[in-house]
């Protein structure tokens, strides 16, 4: 398998194998905790353990009952409902504001671009607990604490930096003469934005949106502060579940969420390739 050159010394060859072992260990360290819960979620027992039946790969050792619990238990259903009620709206807001901000900040005549950019990106850098506490006090004052709109706005603020970063990255490859060309052909600024600029930066917008969605969907700290009992999201319910009763249902949800994340990230990758293809044919 290894294609060694005649001049490679024995230590070169040894390093070749050691390097691969190190890489393998890193992957194991990253992936194992995630992968191990997947078979566990099909556990027929009620604990976080591999039962002897499972280890012997007997069919009685496995069951879908934790999945059934997730889909029938009203607590989980409310949590899922809330998550799906909050995340998409927060994502839409993030995408809208983030894209506009990125386009505005990409124009050279805007004053204090770097400062504005730094402020908008800050929710990503400031420790989440600080943002959450700040939002709690601020939202309490203006009556948004514990409301649906409050949680949506808080999540939108967390998602905006992702959209700004991905859209700004796509915009750096955007040829400004295209907007001039569009204007010279008679298209006004709005048509130019939707017909020329938007389709070309769309991959950046969508991948930013996916990050914003995942951020909102996975977020627990801000919801704990800004939300209320009626706005429990999936991560909140999982957090509760872990503290109060260690039910394998959490593993079932985790498996579902992992699958969802993998699907979303694959979409990002496909979009990124599409964007590169489009970029590749942009005359430079």
């Amino acid at each position: 398998m290894a294609n060694f050159q005649p001049y490679d010394t024995s230590s070169d060859k040894a390093w070749y194998y050691i390097f691969r072992v190190i890489c393998g260990l890193i992957f194991f360290f990253l992936m194992f905790p995630i992968l191990v819960i997947m078979p566990l979620s099909f556990n027929a027992g009620n604990y976080f353990t591999f039962t002897p039946e499972m280890l012997r790969l007997e069919i009685e050792g496995f069951s879908l009952k934790h999945y059934r619990d997730f889909f029938t238990n009203p607590d989980w259903q409310v949590a899922m409902y809330n998550s799906f009620r909050i995340a998409p709206v927060a994502t839409l807001l993030s995408v809208g504001f983030g894209t506009l901000a990125a386009i505005g900040l990409s124009q050279s005549h805007v004053p204090f671009r770097r400062t504005i950019m730094a402020i908008l990106i800050s929710p990503m850098i400031v420790p989440l607990i600080l943002s959450a506490a700040g939002m709690y006090f601020f939202y309490s004052r203006i009556g948004l604490q514990g409301t649906y709109i409050g949680v949506v706005l808080a999540h939108a603020a967390l998602g905006i930096p992702f959209v700004i970063i991905t859209v700004t990255a796509t915009l750096t490859g955007f040829d400004k003469s295209l907007t001039r060309a569009s204007a010279s052909l008679g298209a006004g600024p709005i048509r130019t934005f939707f017909k020329i600029q938007m389709p070309l930066i769309l991959p950046g917008v969508i991948s930013g949106g996916l990050f914003a969605f995942i951020t909102s969907f996975d977020e627990v700290v801000v919801v704990l502060f800004v939300g209320s009992a009626s706005l429990k999201t999936l991560p909140w319910e999982m957090f509760n579940g872990l503290r109060e009763q260690i039910s394998p249902t959490i593993l079932a949800i985790a498996t579902i969420l992992i699958t969802l994340s993998v699907l979303l990230l694959s979409t990002i990758e496909i979009l990124r390739r599409r964007s590169e293809r489009l970029r590749g044919i942009t005359p430079s």
Binding site: S182, L185, A187, K195, L200, P283
Partner: peptide, 29 residues
């Protein structure tokens, strides 16, 4: 404004819209 001047322009780097076909580029105006 430029888009109301009815002046055609050819750019140094062509500035064709990469996400449109040739015919769509031509049909745009």
């Amino acid at each position: 404004p430029p888009h109301k001047r009815e002046i055609g322009m050819v750019f140094q780097n062509y500035a064709l819209f990469p996400h449109m076909t040739v015919a769509e580029n031509l049909a745009f105006p």
